[in-house]
Amino acid sequence: MKLCVVVLLLLIHNAAAVLHTSRNFYTASSEVPNFPEFVAVGYVDDVQIDHYDSNTQRAEPKQDWMNKVTVEDPQYWEEQTQRGLNAQQGFKVNIETLKQRFNQTGGVHIVQRMYGCDWDDETGEVKGYDQHGYDGEDFISFDLQSLSWVAAKQQAFITKMKLDKDKAQLARWKNDLTQQCPDWLKKFVSYGQSTLKRTVFPSVSLLQKSPSSPVTCHASGFYPNRIMLFWARDGEEVHEGVEPGVSLPNHDGTFQRSVHLDLSSVPPADWEKYECVFKISGAQKPTVTKLERERIRTNRGRGGGGGDGEGEFPVGPVIGAVLGAAVLILVLVLGGVYFRKRQNQGFKRASTTDMSSSSKESSSSDLIPRSKLSTK
């Protein structure tokens, strides 16, 4: 019965089909020391595929299999470089435009864009996204349902009004998000299928810093990042006293994630009722790790015992998680993910720019790009 409950739980978790994602992150910054003024990065299924920044001024592949694109389009990387240069120039003007709108002068400021799509290779369903932000907050976004722009700030209303008037351009944006983006995403998934469609299972450890600390279930070395990691009691998922973590990148392209369980109100005799469940989307069986004292690695040794050091709390994963978090934050800043994440939308891939403005501002400082996806 217990196993049936866990399987049912996993089926519920897996109700949403596996998606392939195309994500572009564009970021322009001002007065950030030792940082490029403009950075563009692209991801497919959480794997970085390209990079451009204002220092190198070159679009470059980040995966060997991305060079396959030149078989169909020999000028692909030259075209991407030109798009990067155009975006760089547009974003530089954008910061000045936004500083005017927010009555700002100097200081650190960041303009961001997230642009791209999700493609379900089972149902064929496609979802597109186009979100823009300024200094860590939403500014304006494109609504595919109404084919209109949604202003998140009063200062964005000028942009919304101008863009909503151009019906032909709204139709082109819809085509970019629902046709071009998934078409290129399918190609990229085909090019990199040996990497993107591989499955790597993690090592799972139970960690506890001190007897009063939560017990952490730490999974590291898994791919893809479409996974579930949760605590269960008697086969049913536990929410009370549980603090889930986020996936962090490892240096080898795999991921790590932790989930913490507070056992301070749980009688010791009931510990054996708990287990940590790891499941990769699409995999047949979950990895179930029972909560047994002798398996917990602590500062005092395995299971709280004293001491040969074999089972001591592993500083490697902890340091790796900290460094991974630092790397992730850097990627998110560079990639333009410092928006407040919406519950119903992920952060998606971006493109070149060319912004919209008020009558007092130069037409070259449009806050929204009118060009196509960076993937063509």
Results as ranks from 00 to 15, higher is better:
residue 1 M to T: 15
residue 1 M to F: 10
residue 7 V to A: 12
residue 10 L to Q: 04
residue 10 L to N: 03
residue 11 L to H: 11
residue 13 H to A: 13
residue 19 L to G: 08
residue 22 S to L: 12
residue 24 N to E: 08
residue 27 T to A: 12
residue 31 E to Q: 14
residue 32 V to H: 03
residue 46 D to P: 01
residue 54 S to Y: 01
residue 55 N to E: 11
residue 58 R to E: 10
residue 60 E to Q: 14
residue 71 V to H: 11
residue 74 P to V: 07
residue 79 E to Y: 10
residue 80 Q to N: 08
residue 81 T to G: 05
residue 92 K to F: 04
residue 96 E to S: 07
residue 98 L to Q: 08
residue 101 R to P: 02
residue 111 V to W: 14
residue 116 G to C: 05
residue 125 E to A: 15
residue 126 V to T: 15
residue 128 G to D: 07
residue 149 W to N: 01
residue 167 K to D: 02
residue 176 D to V: 07
residue 178 T to N: 09
residue 185 L to S: 09
residue 185 L to I: 06
residue 186 K to R: 10
residue 186 K to A: 05
residue 187 K to T: 12
residue 191 Y to T: 07
residue 192 G to H: 02
residue 193 Q to S: 06
residue 193 Q to C: 10
residue 200 V to T: 15
residue 202 P to T: 00
residue 205 S to L: 06
residue 208 Q to R: 11
residue 212 S to P: 01
residue 219 A to R: 00
residue 230 F to G: 00
residue 231 W to V: 02
residue 240 E to W: 00
residue 241 G to D: 02
residue 243 E to N: 10
residue 245 G to Y: 01
residue 250 N to F: 02
residue 252 D to W: 06
residue 252 D to N: 12
residue 254 T to N: 06
residue 257 R to A: 01
residue 261 L to H: 00
residue 274 Y to H: 01
residue 280 I to S: 13
residue 285 K to T: 10
residue 289 T to Q: 15
residue 289 T to W: 04
residue 292 E to W: 02
residue 292 E to N: 06
residue 297 R to H: 12
residue 298 T to L: 03
residue 300 R to I: 05
residue 306 G to T: 12
residue 315 V to M: 12
residue 328 L to S: 09
residue 329 I to K: 11
residue 329 I to Y: 07
residue 329 I to H: 10
residue 330 L to S: 09
residue 334 L to I: 02
residue 348 K to T: 08
residue 353 T to D: 15
residue 357 S to E: 05
residue 357 S to T: 14
residue 362 S to V: 04
residue 367 L to H: 01
residue 369 P to S: 13
residue 369 P to W: 13
residue 371 S to M: 11
